[in-house]
Amino acid sequence: MKRLHHHDHEHAHDRHSPEETLALLGYMANHNRQHAQELHELAHSVDGEAAQLLHEAVVDLTVSSEKLVEALRILKGEE
């Protein structure tokens, strides 16, 4: 079984360089995809309402990742 990992999230509102922004968005989109896969696997190990909620969370994370990828595409000028 995979171990869960801890996230520290600082919320300083410093401006990032364009390169940092692109790198961070790419990282976050990929990271969310990995979490979505983990949740998908977990959803198949439980039943009922919990499984349904986990499946919905997978959809939410997938949509979120798609928005990050779209923002990344726009920032790269790939409109």
Score class of each variant (00 low, 15 high):
residue 41 E to F: 06
residue 68 L to I: 05
residue 79 E to A: 06
residue 7 H to R: 09
residue 21 T to F: 14
residue 70 E to K: 09
residue 11 H to P: 15
residue 57 A to L: 13
residue 36 A to T: 05
residue 62 T to E: 05
residue 16 H to P: 03
residue 9 H to D: 11
residue 66 E to T: 10
residue 42 L to R: 09
residue 9 H to T: 09
residue 40 H to V: 07
residue 7 H to C: 01
residue 28 M to K: 10
residue 1 M to A: 07
residue 29 A to I: 05
residue 59 V to I: 11
residue 31 H to M: 10
residue 77 G to V: 04
residue 38 E to N: 12
residue 69 V to T: 09
residue 35 H to W: 08
residue 42 L to S: 13
residue 44 H to S: 03
residue 73 R to Y: 15
residue 15 R to Q: 12
residue 5 H to K: 09
residue 29 A to N: 00
residue 33 R to I: 07
residue 23 A to Q: 09
residue 62 T to W: 00
residue 57 A to Q: 15
residue 60 D to Q: 13
residue 75 L to N: 03
residue 17 S to N: 06
residue 34 Q to N: 13
residue 16 H to T: 10
residue 19 E to P: 02
residue 7 H to Y: 00
residue 78 E to C: 05
residue 31 H to R: 03
residue 74 I to D: 06
residue 10 E to V: 08
residue 13 H to N: 01
residue 59 V to T: 10
residue 79 E to Y: 04
residue 58 V to D: 07
residue 75 L to H: 00
residue 72 L to V: 08
residue 34 Q to P: 05
residue 18 P to T: 06
residue 44 H to E: 13
residue 37 Q to R: 07
residue 10 E to L: 08
residue 62 T to N: 00
residue 50 A to H: 04
residue 1 M to G: 12
residue 78 E to T: 10
residue 12 A to Y: 05
residue 6 H to N: 13
residue 44 H to I: 02
residue 50 A to E: 09
residue 27 Y to A: 06
residue 64 S to Q: 05
residue 23 A to H: 12
residue 38 E to H: 15
residue 48 G to M: 01
residue 14 D to S: 12
residue 49 E to G: 10
residue 3 R to S: 01
residue 3 R to D: 00
residue 14 D to Y: 13
